[in-house]
Design a protein around this nucleic acid. Sequence first.
DNA 1: ATGACCGCGCTACGCGGA
Length: 263
Amino acid sequence: MRIATWNVNSIRARAERIGAWLDRSDADVLAIQELKCKDSQFPHEIFDERGYEVAFHGLDQWNGVAIASRIGLDDVEIGFDEMPGFGKESAVEARAISAVAGGVRVYSLYVPNGREVDHPHYTYKLEWLEKLRAVAAARLAADGDERFVLTGDFNVAPLDEDVWDMEAFDGATHVSDRERAAFQALVDAGLTETSRPFTPGPGVYTFWDYQRLRFPKKEGMRIDFQLASPALSQTATAAMIDREERKGKGASDHAPVIVDYDV
DNA sequence: ATGACCGCGCTACGCGGA
């Protein structure tokens, strides 16, 4: 099965491109982040027309996550256990959804940005990742043979080579020690990132800022990943980052990250 | 060509993104 994850940066602004991408990608499952719409505005037709079932969760114009599948979509869960909220009333945001497709529980995750190191949003990001780790660890403890994968926009660049210039990121979020430790904790819990072995760096990215000609200058960041459980990760056979999708007018600032699993 | 982002919402400019 082919699983893709893609931060689309508005599903309504991108609907046509997403449909065209589904037509050529051969993806069985697509995890989507940054819908930027509430449930009542979700353009489910683009999935219905192509034979994909779709589950989505959007509360307002921010965040929003979805999973589309053409191989079944069962046991949909919104959020995850003890997922932290943010703001005055600690509101839980639309940053996580999961469902079982083809015997695999696929998570679509939009990790908080963090904004600035030590900003309240940064603390929120670290707590969010820690609670996510606890969920993954609990799943593995309950059933070490379970096939599941945490996919999405992690908003962390784990390695120095995952940004085009570390000097440009001095003191910035995404590369700080604590964010990298939070990502590494997911790996230490037993998960394996399945796209990198097939798409080695340096100079391989999943995001390019709209500003300052970052894409033509090949100045990007690798921040979108698939962290798979042992039973799933050992079946990974191929991966690609579809940077073609970043080209042209009306592209998202993120490219799809696609992994093939032999299940 | 020495410029140069995009999407959203009580359609105007501030917020959020990274």
